[in-house]
C-alpha cells in the first residue's frame, strides 16, 4: 500500500485527463478531427494527422470553456 496522495495537483490532473478522454471519445471530436485531417492533407501538410488531432482537441476544449462560461452566466 502506498502513501496517501495529498497533492491537490493530482486531482486537477485526473480531472483534466477525464475531460480530455470524454472529448476524444465524443463523435464531435472524431468528425472534426477527420475533416481537419482531410483538409490538411489536401493542402499538402506532412503532419496532417497530428495537427488535426491537436486542433480538434484544442477547439473542443475552448468550446467546453465557452459552454461552462455561458452556463455560469445563466445561474
Amino acid at each position: 500500500m502506498g502513501a496517501p496522495v495529498t497533492d491537490p495537483r493530482h486531482a486537477e490532473m485526473e480531472d483534466l485527463a477525464k475531460r480530455i478522454t470524454g472529448l476524444c471519445l465524443s463523435p464531435e471530436f472524431t468528425n472534426l478531427r477527420r475533416e481537419l485531417e482531410q483538409l490538411y492533407r489536401n493542402s499538402g501538410s506532412n503532419r496532417s494527422a497530428r495537427q488535426a488531432f491537436q486542433d480538434a482537441l484544442y477547439t473542443l476544449m475552448v468550446q467546453e470553456e465557452i459552454d461552462r462560461y455561458k452556463a455560469k452566466l445563466l445561474e
Binding site: 464531435e28 472534426l32 475533416e35 481537419l36 490538411y40 480538434a56 477547439t59 473542443l60 468550446q63 465557452i66
Partner: peptide, 18 residues
Amino acid sequence: ANVGDLLRQLKNDQITSY
C-alpha cells in the same frame, strides 16, 4: 453554432486566401 464550425470555416478561408 459552435467553435468547431468556426474553425472548419477559418481553415477553409485560410487555404482559399493562400
